[in-house]
Computed example of a mutant assay.
Amino acid sequence: MAFHYGVIEGLYDQENQWSWESRNAYASFCAKKGFNFYIYAPKNDPYLREQWNQPWPEQDFHHLNTLGLSLKQNNVRFGIGLTPFNVRELNHKSRQQLQQKIASINQLNPQILSILFDDFSNDIDDLAKTQADIAEFIAAESTATQFIVAGTYYSKDPLLQRVYGTMPKGYWSDLGQYLDPQFDIFWTGDHVISLGYDQPGLQEMTDQFQRKPFLWDNYPVNDTEWLKHRLRLYTFTGRPWQISDWCRGHAVNPMIQPRLSMIPLATLADLYQQQDRFDGHASFRKAVVDLCGQSLASAIEDNLLYFTEEGTLNFSGFTRKRLENTFSVFQSETAQPYVREILTWLQSGEKC
């Protein structure tokens, strides 16, 4: 099957949730840049996670439906990410609750359904087999045409075993064995937030999963406490275009700031479309001008190291004020969505 790249909205942050207006802006952005899909899977939506067995409030359901329609009208495939939180077995109660939830999701008509067992404790026997059985049951109830599973251990990062316990022996190969070939499997790499990917590492997981992995790339995400003070605006690095040969797909997880996230995301599109001709810095410069306009782009590039390396935790009062004064002068309709996010970020750093 063809390789596809797209966006997965997977933020944890409770204080900085994306607006529906921002999400809807991704329909035209993804279409313009050649992104194939947008998966709605924020960890801060309780109706996809801790309260998955409860229905969405009517207004949220309406917004989700509108988002899906907007994406499809732009020929961008719409996805939903469901975490069957604390489902430890398929019994009468869990089957009934899952059927009800999937029936509700089917009304939204997503083409992609992601079944996410990540980031919650699942200390049960036969973990891989149980998760495969749950995923198979969900897929049988769904009208989606593509299914992607995230296991409990979705990276080699030792953090996962420190938090969720020792990984069962043979977990990755068992997951690959028990999951029907129709399922893709998410993989974040050697770390939860990986600096890059190479062919040997991805081939190893291909062998384990008995299929090419589907990258869940946590760049430019910044919703962890140690990254919130930075804006990860720069071009994608450490990701060779040959990933399109080594993986089934590439899903990128954006920042707390939806509009500013479009800057690095645009460079990923260039990477895959230009391949050996890709120039990361030229791609960044073009992306920021195309999105923000020349004047604001120049100001962002001039202050790039303050955003990406120094961060608000290290700003002096003088630097913070200088940046506020620099960016608050941009009032054009094009510039405003980006400027608002920069100023909000600067103000949030003041509270730290």
Rank of each mutant, 00 (worst) to 15 (best):
Y154P: 09
Y197N: 10
I148C: 01
Y26L: 02
A144P: 10
F137D: 13
N314M: 15
L159K: 14
S114R: 07
L227Q: 11
L127R: 10
Q242T: 12
G6R: 09
L304I: 13
N24C: 12
H191I: 00
Y26S: 02
S142F: 06
L160P: 04
E50T: 07
W172C: 14
P213F: 03
P110A: 04
A2E: 11
C247Q: 07
Q208P: 09
R77F: 09
F37Y: 14
L260F: 03
K351Q: 10
N75I: 02
E324A: 14
Y5V: 11
Q17G: 04
A251V: 03
D198A: 07
A31V: 00
L71A: 05
G280V: 03
R340M: 05
S94W: 06
C292F: 01
D184C: 10
Q294W: 01
Q273W: 05
Q131K: 13
V289R: 14
S328Y: 03
D270A: 09
D184G: 14
P264C: 06
F278L: 05
T237A: 12
F183D: 08
R23T: 00
S298W: 10
I8M: 08
N303P: 01
Q336N: 07
D190G: 15
W226R: 14
N109A: 10
F315L: 05
A41N: 01
I105H: 04
